[in-house]
């Protein structure tokens, strides 16, 4: 464990908490892409299948349980509790355009052709594109509430910090996870446009981020 990975995990946790609390307190999921949240729940489910078979550390196990619980709670709030507030006509990204390539690629490019390893690879590739429906929804509505942009900021920051973690681990322990690194770089690149808007608009105190 190093400071970059810890900061990344904390940033990830903060993002998930920001979204969950926002939906719970505003009793609304307007402007939130339910599809992205379902994809994130799928990412955690397929990545953390080793939760009961491999014990790495108390921290690892606890964080996996927390991430799984909170992502399912978010999906529950969007599609069950506050479903009448769910903005389905703006959440129209065709997720099959993400799932088909990701499934295909995880069968082609993996470390071992075993169910657990293919599902892990699937979760890595899926995480890189899981935010697409949310970013698409923002471009479609042309705006995002500032809380939603803070959620996206910490979510994008988490994988950027993981890149620093991989650089650190490469130089200190010769660790290099090619699939995670390539996918993580792609994932972070998808946030660059948002990061620019976030810094130039939201941090200037705008109530909500209006796209140009």
């Amino acid at each position: 464990m190093n400071v970059f990975r810890l900061a990344g995990d904390v940033s990830h946790l903060v993002a998930i908490i920001i979204l969950l609390v926002k939906i719970w307190r505003s009793k609304s999921c307007a402007g939130i892409s339910g599809k992205s949240q379902v994809l994130f729940a799928l990412v955690f489910t397929t990545r953390y299948l080793d939760l009961f078979t491999v014990f790495i550390s108390a921290y690892n196990t606890i964080m996996k349980v927390v991430f799984l619980a909170m992502s399912y709670a978010t999906v529950y709030l969007i599609y069950m509790r506050f479903r009448n507030m769910y903005d389905s006509e703006n959440d129209t990204f065709r997720v099959e355009f993400l799932l088909v390539p990701v499934i295909g690629l995880s069968f082609l490019e993996n470390y071992a052709f075993t169910p657990l390893e293919i599902l892990w690879t699937f979760s890595i590739f899926l995480e890189a594109v899981a935010i697409m429906p949310q970013l698409f929804m923002i471009t479609k509505t042309g705006e995002a509430e500032s809380i939603t942009t803070h959620y996206l900021f910490f979510l994008g920051l988490y994988r950027a910090l993981y890149i620093a973690n991989w650089v650190w681990r490469y130089h200190t322990e010769e660790f290099f996870d090619q699939i995670a690194v390539v996918s993580g770089v792609v994932q972070t690149i998808f946030y660059c446009d948002f990061f620019y808007l976030y810094v130039t608009r939201v941090l200037r105190g705008k109530a909500k981020m209006i796209l140009p």
Partner: peptide, 10 residues
């Protein structure tokens, strides 16, 4: 070395 089968990252 490429990632070992044991994935220790979240």
């Amino acid at each position: 070395a490429q990632g070992e089968a044991l994935h220790d990252e979240l």
